[in-house]
Design a binder for these strands. Structure first.
Length: 577
RNA sequence: GGUUUCGUGGUGUAAUGGAUAGCACAUAAGUUUUCGGCACUUAGAGUUAGGGUUCGAGUCCUUACGAAACCGCCA
């Protein structure tokens, strides 16, 4: 965690202890103490609520807080001065030489050493996991990008991250897929076919069928049914999964591990899990309650159940169907047990909002294996509605008319997609307007931010052309003399960057990066424009080398940070646009 | 019926429980011989409603209203 925030916090923790032991104040809850960054630097650079917390707890009337703090606070080397605001905050001003030191940290790329709080712990982040029954489409993109950016954040903060994709290649949906494909294959051999309502009508299956047909001709028409099913299943899954991987690559989403449901089913892991649950007395034969609402054709049946209601779920869940087959939940439970056995320190799943109802049972399951509420985490993404010509595009699986990732990519490009998808909180439902995202103006902030980077780069390159390269060693007097108010503002924001990374990761909220990024770029553009009105404020002034040096120095730091953010959100950092 | 998420200017969104609720679009008024105007400056306009916790609430708890997603031995 960021050094000086922590230092100041520790100071107040110790200070609180001291005041309590001297009986100046009665006891307080130290966790309430916080250190905040201040966005507008009018009142100070950082602040604490310390005084607000102890104010009512002062029990010794002779105790004068301000005098006492004055005696101690300046032992901290980066505090220049402080004042207490009307409403009780203590506002601190940082010393200039501390700012310069921090900038040096950024310049030397050491600025992220402070936030490696992951300690090489292993994190598994499972996302996308779309069924390999068709091309990847718009609904999956958000989860894909959210998962990818979150993974990058965890890497940034010192975790060892595995990006994992769970391939649902077993079960009846895949059988239906295989059937549909076989029908398309028969169609190619001249037979009339009829795709049923619950089968897959998508035209992509025709392409796959053609491929099989060109390899094997009519070989499969009279083959054994099981052979056909197995072959077509395997072929379809391989083909479609490969397409999914290629499509995801287009928007820079890659995985370390693909785990196949079929392998989970084949292994004995589900039996192992069964034994564990049995030992814990979490399994019994029983009858599920009648579902509310729709009650057509429901009849009570005895089946194998998991006592998830004892672990937080609202009812028990079926592990076996009445015919004795494992349920989907049972397989999925086994898969998560498998992840547990691979010894990760933390599991994160990214699910669409349509699976929210599934969370409690999986959480119950993992609680039964690992009694740690922070071990298994599900983050959900709300739905994305696609807008074109101001209309919501309705997607229907039956009609096979969903908009694919490839369509969107061709229309919009990688960077705007990624930027847009990560710029709002994952739990907010968003509209993805193709016509808007494609626009290259401020309405679309990705270009605004990339332009800031390009501008900064053009300054640095210009400086190189002019052979102004030795702007690295700055002394504090030069710095104090030449730095402007605006520049101090952007510098203070820059040195808070590690803290932002810490916060974004800790709270699993990558969209905070965007907020910060846009603020930073706005200040930069604003400073740039001042050079228009007043030539002496331009970044490069060949008449004033001392001032130019300082500007180049912080601009280089600015580039470093912007580039770092871009790399996390996975967009390009263009030197020119 | 139940679970979950959400409700912020005209529209779309942001705000570890902190100070004057930020930003963009739209609207209105300005700025262009430049290190790239794909930019800058300025103005108006907002926390669904009620109750509670707190020194302090858009944020936490609760009720009502509204929106979306989900809920069966499917996957």
């Amino acid at each position: 965690m960021n050094n000086y925030i922590q230092k100041l916090l520790n100071f107040f923790y110790d200070y609180a202890d001291e005041l309590i032991s001297k009986e100046y104040i009665s006891s307080i809850n130290k966790k309430q103490i916080s250190i905040d960054y201040l966005s507008n630097n009018k009142k100070g650079d950082i602040a604490t609520n310390f005084f607000l917390i102890i104010k009512k707890k002062i029990i010794n009337k002779d105790f004068n807080f301000v005098d006492d703090l004055n005696k101690k606070i300046f032992n901290i080397e980066f505090i220049n001065n402080f004042e207490i605001s009307n409403n009780g905050f203590i506002n601190f001003f940082l010393k200039d030489d501390f700012l310069l030191t921090s900038l040096n940290y950024i310049f030397d790329q050491k600025f992220l050493d402070d936030i490696k709080f992951g300690n090489n712990k292993k994190v598994n982040i499972e996302f996308v996991s779309a069924n390999p029954t068709g091309p990847i489409h718009i609904a999956h993109i958000r989860g894909a990008i959210f998962g990818d950016v979150l993974s990058s954040l965890y890497e940034k903060t010192g975790f060892k991250v595995s990006r994992e994709y769970y391939v649902n290649d077993a079960g009846s949906q895949i059988d239906k897929l295989s059937n549909s494909l076989f029908k398309r294959y028969l169609e190619l051999s001249g037979q009339k076919i009829d795709i049923l309502d619950d089968e897959y009508p998508g035209e992509y299956l025709i392409d796959i069928a053609k491929e099989i047909h060109s390899q094997d001709n009519d070989k499969w028409i009279k083959s054994d049914k099981d052979d056909v099913n197995n072959y077509f299943k395997q072929f379809a899954v391989d083909y479609l999964l490969n397409n999914i991987r290629e499509d995801l690559k287009l928007i820079n989403v890659n995985f370390d591990i693909f785990t196949h449901e079929s392998n989970i089913v084949k292994s004995n892991i589900i039996d192992q899990l069964f034994d564990i649950l049995k030992q814990k007395n979490l399994i019994y034969y029983g009858i599920l309650p009648k579902p509310k609402g729709d009650d057509q054709e429901w009849e009570p049946r005895k089946q194998l159940l998991f006592r998830s209601s004892e672990l937080g779920d609202d009812q028990d869940r079926a592990l076996k169907k009445s015919n004795g087959d494992w349920t989907y939940f049972a397989n999925d439970a086994a898969y998560h047990y498998d992840k547990y056995k691979r010894k990760y320190d933390k599991l994160i799943n990214i699910w669409g909002s349509d699976h929210i109802g599934y969370i409690p049972r999986m959480k119950s399951l993992l609680n039964s294996i690992q009694n740690d509420n922070k071990y298994f985490n599900v983050l959900t993404c709300q739905i994305v509605s696609l807008i074109q010509n101001k209309q919501k595009i309705k997607m229907s699986k039956r009609e096979g008319n969903f908009v694919t990732l490839l369509d969107v990519f061709n229309k919009v490009g990688k960077d705007p997609i990624r930027y847009y998808m990560i710029s709002t909180r994952n739990e907010t439902a968003i509209d993805f307007d193709l016509d808007e995202v494609i626009k290259k103006n401020k309405e679309n902030n990705v270009f605004y931010c990339q332009y800031a980077y390009a501008r900064a780069s053009s300054v640095i390159n210009k400086a190189k052309e002019l052979k102004i390269n030795n702007f690295k060693s700055l002394n504090i007097n030069e710095f104090k003399k030449n730095i402007t108010k605006d520049e101090l503002q952007i510098i203070k924001l820059m040195i808070s960057y590690p803290y932002l990374i810490y916060q974004s990761t800790y709270s699993n909220e990558p969209h905070r990066l965007i907020n910060y990024l846009e603020t930073l770029c706005t200040i930069f553009h604003s400073i740039w424009n001042k050079g228009k009105d007043n030539e002496s404020l331009r970044f490069i002034d060949e008449e004033n080398f001392e001032q130019t040096k300082i500007k180049l120095f912080w601009i280089q730091c600015f580039r470093t940070i912007i580039k770092d953010i871009f790399s996390i959100i996975g967009i390009n950092a263009p030197e020119k646009m």
